[in-house]
Amino acid sequence: MSLPSDLMYTESHEWVRLNDDGSVTVGITDYAQAQLGDLVFVESPEVDADVDAGDAVAVVESVKAASDIYAPLAGRISESNGALADAPELVNTSPYEDGWLFTMAPNDTSDVEELLSAESYEAFIAGDEEDED
């Protein structure tokens, strides 16, 4: 597994990209999409909603199960990925690019630095897999 090193991560398996304009793009990791299996529906977050870090803001559903997606940071939701309505499978096929879930304007961009680095997230999921066995 190769984790993009320019992204930050959460223990709930979201990835976060800090964009040049200070906004962040959020999606779920390749590990998370593989665990969920074929995605068939994405309930997008409400645009313009003010959210706290850890709020459940969206839902992704595979054939087998529904999973909440949590806001990685406090801020305002600015955009959701409209392409996922017709093609939720983009989250499976392109989790870090075309399968992004939403963008948000963080209250404080420095909060991004508090998230997990690629290295820390990799160590975290290695522990996750050990728990499973």
């Binding site: 299996g37 074929d38 068939v40 595979s62 054939v63 087998k64």
Partner: peptide
């Protein structure tokens, strides 16, 4: 086994 490659 719940799934081998893809449920769909």
């Amino acid at each position: 086994p719940v799934q081998y490659t893809s449920l769909i």
